[in-house]
Design a protein around this nucleic acid. Structure first.
Lengths: 254, 254
DNA sequence: TCAAGCGTTGCAAATAATGCAACGACCATT
DNA sequence: AATGGTCGTTGCATTATTTGCAACGCTTGA
């Protein structure tokens, strides 16, 4: 909509791939070097871009700070966190919290497993949307049309033999998930890792977030993990209650 | 340098304070509503801004993803992390890693204390620059002129009675730190919390990062914490060795 | 029913961004 | 030492891009 801003913002994902010098940026933007320079300077003034000692540019510090502040303003996260910690204390496994936003599902909180073997994931990282248990829950709640459109648009990478292979299978899975009110991922993303997930709902009943417990095969079998389902659902419901205002907010530790 | 981009980017910190509607954004930017709308739309297309259900805008998901990617490109962090974890296993306290960038010091990694009492801090959060032990180390290494200029420019908030009160005291402290090659913060930020920190140096000997161990009085006294200094320094040196390429990179776990 | 507030669009005016060409600094090669 | 190349930087004229305005449609509340 605004060409100048559009160009400037296109620099960010470009630099996310790694540091680049002026010429590279100009080339990949398809503009003159002088133009790229002025854009970079503006980004620099705002701290979004940093110029390292070898003169190349990379993403800057303010970006972290902004993401941080944005994160802290998400009240679901704030409400959910103590519950996630408690759940982690009870079962010992990795606990995740995720939301859907603009065709992506991303983790917004995580409490690490107490076992030495941990799975790789990072807060802020987009989730493998076609296989993750939390993603299924969040997408299953979208309006029919939107869900359908999104499913068609997605890629279906075969992470493992059990990954969701195509849109049709995915939509079917979503229907199941929608009906039963919980979801699993049994080795669909990484062969040896299983998850159980439950939805968190707002006052109007719509799914606003989803949480999951993940554990590798070497620690517990899929069956054992499934026995945690009632606990996960209870935790999710507790968060739902607090988020929608049904449960009185007793003592929220600031 | 570029007015349009400048205005667009000014929207981000504004939204970081909390969600805002079109009118508010336009007012605070000092531009017409239609202008603000077009800027917001561009930011939206890039995922930096999200429009929530009540039509108000807030910071978007891509911001997290970008910050995430930027983070992963910082190789100091990657190299240092296993060392930080090991140190935490040895002493049990909270371990921080911080860098200096553009007049700010910020945490880029953290391993939480194993004790129930934890200090509040977040990765990506700017550090209390006038008192934190890691900040002293990073600033102490700046060129004389820059250090002086920065010290004059800073605010000196009195977090506690032991906070650095003014530029003069700060510069003196930096001189000491520079000479001894390590730093402390004894209750200068929060009355009951102490830190010991050591510098991480690149191949050219310049300080590229700093790490610290922090613990509250209720767990260990300041004296006891200081006995950890040799261990902290050894850890920092190990990281320096690996970062500067002196130590062969044996088996970096991807 | 009417008024007020908000987001949205088309348009003409003018400001602000663009590409060019030229300069200086730095590095490596001859 | 001298030269050729690369890279970042600046001033300027051109032109495209952004801007503010006014008007419209919508929802909300009196």
């Amino acid at each position: 909509m605004s060409q100048t801003v559009d160009r400037a913002l296109s620099i960010l994902p470009l630099l996310a791939e790694g540091p680049a010098d002026l010429g590279q940026v100009a080339d990949r933007l398809g503009v003159h070097k002088s133009t790229a320079l002025r854009l970079l300077r503006t980004l620099h003034e705002h701290g979004l871009v940093y110029r390292q000692s070898d003169q190349r540019y990379r993403l800057g510090a303010r970006l972290f700070a902004l993401a941080q502040e944005a994160m802290e303003n998400l009240d679901i996260r704030e409400i959910a966190h103590p519950h996630l910690v408690r759940l982690n204390e009870q079962c010992g496994h990795t606990v995740h919290l995720a939301v859907y936003e603009e065709n992506e599902v991303l983790y917004i909180d995580k409490v690490d497993s107490r076992y030495p073997v941990r799975m790789y994931s990072r807060i802020g990282k987009p989730v493998a949307i076609t296989v993750a248990a939390v993603a299924k829950l969040l997408l299953a709640d979208l309006p029919e049309a939107e869900r359908r459109a999104l499913a068609e648009r997605l890629d279906y990478p075969l992470y493992t033999a059990r990954s969701t292979p195509h849109a049709e299978a995915f939509l079917k899975e979503l229907a199941t998930v929608r009906e039963q009110g919980w979801a699993t991922d049994l080795g669909g993303h990484e062969e040896s890792i299983n998850c159980v997930a439950a939805p968190i709902r707002g006052a109007d009943g719509r799914v606003v977030a989803a949480m999951s417990v993940s554990a590798p095969n070497v620690v517990v079998t899929a069956e054992e993990l499934l026995t945690l389902l009632p606990l996960v659902r209870r935790t999710a419901d507790a968060i739902s209650g607090e988020y929608s205002g049904r449960t009185p907010v007793k003592d929220r530790t600031a």
